[in-house]
Design a protein around this nucleic acid. Structure first.
Ligand SMILES: [Zn+2]
Ligand SMILES: [Zn+2]
Ligand SMILES: [Zn+2]
Ligand SMILES: [Zn+2]
Lengths: 134, 134
DNA sequence: CCAATATTGAGAACCATTGTCAAACGCGGC
DNA sequence: GCCGCGTTTGACAATGGTTCTCAATATTGG
């Protein structure tokens, strides 16, 4: 059997720029915002390349992508273990959270109804302490 | 103090057609699919009106809207109590599920981090029994 | 039936995302 | 260092879902 096909990803200036931009914030940002960030850092990367790179990183599990209320994709550099997010609706401040109990629950519910190959999405939104006081 | 402003919603042929279409399926459909369904039922309703009506129903809590993998909005007539969904990735078959434990967990996690005004999204995807055998 | 207000729809406008494809680049071999 | 080749890039066009516009129409209460 053939080993997993590996497309041979190359370390380019552009990919480095995207990675660098991702390291500069810890909330979720749109591809366009990240593109602007890169420009402001002095680098020049095509918007299409930003999209391509973000998608690749998401596939590789290095960034998480979710959708804001308008359906726009927003991205964030994340740890590589399975987790969910607690996101501030006002400033975007994000906390990674884990919930073994929830993981078990989704599996149980699915099994109960005979569903297989389960995956799930779970995000929590609220107002963070900092935004509460202001 | 003035009572809650009530925009005075009128029962029109169009809104009836959308409601009727919604009653005709129990999986999640896109606005365009619902628009097609209405046409096939013999009614004629503008696409913009379908969007407007679906949004209004969603605000009123009579339908649930979520986003598919591509970010498209998909809609479904739902019960009015808080619940989540177990959706077949292949045929779309949907089961409404409730999980008091999960509700408590999200609240606890949020409180633990000082977040307030909590809301959350949670959807489970998998392959339903029918699609498993085929 | 009237006036006031809400609704509709055809099409334009928006805008995030993806596709195109020739030029530029990274890499391994020589 | 130089070649050859597959990979990557980017300017720009194309897509496609969703919203906007605004004049024409429908509903309602009187
Ligand atoms: Zn994450
Ligand atoms: Zn999980
Ligand atoms: Zn529902
Ligand atoms: Zn819930």
């Amino acid at each position: 059997m053939t080993s997993t096909e590996r497309p041979a990803v190359r370390p380019t200036r552009q990919r480095r720029a995207v990675a660098s931009a991702l390291a500069g914030f810890d909330d979720f940002r749109s591809a366009q915002e990240i593109h602007d960030l890169i420009s402001r850092q002095g680098d020049s990367v095509g918007l299409a390349t930003v999209y391509r790179t973000l998608s690749a990183l998401a596939d590789a599990g290095e960034v998480d992508m979710l959708r804001n209320e308008d359906g726009e994709a927003i991205w964030r550099s994340c740890s590589d273990t399975h987790h969910h997010h607690l996101v501030c609706r006002t400033c975007g401040a994000t906390v990674e959270v884990e919930g073994p109990a929830v993981e078990k629950w989704t599996g149980a519910i699915a099994a109960e109804h005979g569903y297989a190959d389960i995956s799930h999405t779970l995000e929590i939104f609220g107002t963070c302490p900092a935004c509460l006081v202001s």
